[in-house]
Design a binder for these strands. Structure first.
Lengths: 342, 342
DNA sequence: CCAGAAATGGCAATCGGTTGCCAATAAGTT
DNA sequence: AACTTATTGGCAACCGATTGCCATTTCTGG
């Protein structure tokens, strides 16, 4: 071979350029590249050589337009500020990339309106959607699910494939842990009322508390941010409880800071349990006892399920529901209940 | 069992449906929606009503194909695992969404090969690129920049628009801070050799150290992860230095953990300075003295600059370089140099 | 009242692929 | 050698918009 004569001009090469260079029709090039069995071996080789020489890269838009599949998946997160979602995004990104899909990242700002608009927009831009902690109603979700393939994470709606982190079970373990440390008055620092996982968790705790004969009160709601921790900590102290289970680690970490400011020692005076085991939970002070959830895994599994919907019969039979186990990780923020005089 | 996915009674409305319903040609609908001045007021109203009734959403792919603009910007990060990049992503997401752009998130896995491939792929999929901490050579970057609009963050190459976080200045402040605390033997725990910001920082520290007559040694390189902190801490102790400036907060936090394990007290026995002021730097133990950089702002500014390139004459004159100031935030991980006997 | 400019809307080509359908060629049968 | 059956490759019709160019219609001024 000599120096390539058909070096790339300033315009990216199209399928027609490749066709011209290899002396076949555009349709043949298309088939050679996407349905290899359909084209003669030698022809295909020639085409591939031509494509390589021209540095041909198929135009994703054109492909999407004619095939109806965009090879893109949108991931909607409620709040990109929240480290919890980082882990999910990490998981989805990994798995999507491995499958050759593009990830569209969207922050819905915890607003169901933004969420619904975005879904509308994305209907034709993405092949599927992953909704994390969706604020949508069951009906709205079902409707979306009928329109296009979706998988939810931490949001269970009838008829909608979902990946759930089984935090209630571990939260109840946390309750038992606290009880075994002698606590009898425990508070749940709840998340937003719109959060279904917060509701589920409270339902579990409340029932378990009654069963075990300890007082469990619900405080809040608190925004799932570090800064809410101050209010949460104050409410907790005021409630008279000796231990608090927070909706998530952000609140818990915020509480830790506030309690220290107020001179309340953790865990001597007060025990704190978080949830999610986010980045930082292990090196805050004291290290946080928390519910460890396989968050990244949830992202990966959601992608796998979605891809299963998208390419039926590809791999294993597509599961439509997954419940990922969680466990309690005991660190330094929980300890024996303080002795009460009186 | 569930119904087969993707089966919806009515397909999304196209521009032709709207045209038919409002009794005009498709081209008129297109104009009414994107070039309002071009169409008569009454006609336009009729069209808009029809579009609303049919819930018409323009197909982004088709739009991209014919107009050549995708309204999407890709953000390449070296490692989605790193909290530093989350702040950038947050910034870009915010700003892109405000401008009606879609964000494509891509993890290049710290590999220049993946980076270059991705860029190739994205050339037609995105209108522009934001490269964070690119591993590419100056030439490669320049070539990419000639092909399509890009903005780099923390990577300065001739002829390529960039947003720089001015960490060297603050790192030198950190050095002064340590010197004023009595430290005379200081180490820089360097990041990957391929990181230009690590190189720049070391150049600055090394020069400043000489100028001020203190010993500054370079240790490493260390991977920019928490787990590298152990090796970094050990190296630091072994070096005999009494203070370390780490390439980033992840390493610094990892060092804090390791030093505690080894019974080295921070800041009594050893002072540690981080860089970036990521999530967690304020609540680790002890809280980390670090270089605070407006990372999210960098993401926003990069988008603004990119958008300026994309839509010339839209807003202000497009700057092509920005240097964002940083400052030293002193917390608990730095203190007076330990007294040396002999 | 009419020429000429401005406003308005439609036709059709185009973007870069995919795919159903058909023709031509190659291979296999009897 | 004639006939059937695979293979293989091309034609052309989409996919859903945008946009240059042209034909009307409406408005304006002389």
């Amino acid at each position: 071979m000599s120096a390539p004569p058909g070096v790339s001009p300033d315009r990216p090469a199209t399928i027609h350029d490749v066709a011209a260079l290899s002396g076949v029709a555009a349709s043949t090039v298309s088939r050679a590249l996407s349905t290899p069995g359909r084209v003669n071996f030698r022809t295909r080789e020639r085409i591939q050589a031509a494509a390589a020489e021209l540095k041909y890269v198929p135009n994703a838009q054109a492909k999407a337009l004619s095939s109806g599949r965009t090879k893109a998946v949108a991931v909607l997160v409620a709040d990109i500020t929240n480290p919890f979602f980082f882990d999910i995004i990490r998981g989805t990104q990994l798995q999507l990339k491995a499958a050759g899909y593009t990830q569209l990242l969207v922050d819905t700002e915890e607003s169901d309106e933004v969420e619904v608009n975005t879904v509308e927009q994305l209907r034709q831009t993405a092949d599927g959607l992953i909704l994390t902690a969706s604020r949508l109603s069951d009906e709205a979700l079902a409707k979306v699910s009928a329109t296009m393939p979706i998988v939810t994470i931490n949001r269970d709606a009838p008829g909608v494939p979902s990946v759930m982190l089984d935090t209630p079970t571990a939260t109840n373990q946390a309750l038992d842990h606290l009880i075994s440390l002698g606590h009898t008055s425990i508070a749940y620092l709840s998340g937003p009322d719109t959060s279904s996982s917060s509701r589920r968790r409270w339902a579990g705790l409340s029932a378990a508390g009654q069963e075990r004969g300890v007082t469990v009160v619900r405080l809040g709601p608190f925004a799932p941010r570090t800064y809410s921790g101050a209010a949460a900590a104050d409410a907790l102290v005021h409630s008279g409880a000796t231990a608090g289970i927070a909706f998530n680690d952000l609140i818990a970490i915020g509480m830790l800071q506030r309690l220290r400011e107020r001179g309340v020692h953790v865990p001597q005076d007060m025990s704190i349990v978080g949830c999610d085991d986010i980045f930082g939970a292990d090196f805050c002070s004291p290290p946080l006892t928390t519910v460890t959830a396989p968050v990244e895994r949830a992202g990966r599994d959601a992608v796998t399920m979605l891809l299963g919907q998208l390419n039926p019969g590809f791999g294993t039979a597509p599961r439509s529901h997954a419940i990922l186990p969680t466990h309690l990780t005991i660190r330094g923020s929980t300890g024996p209940a303080p002795l009460r005089n009186t």
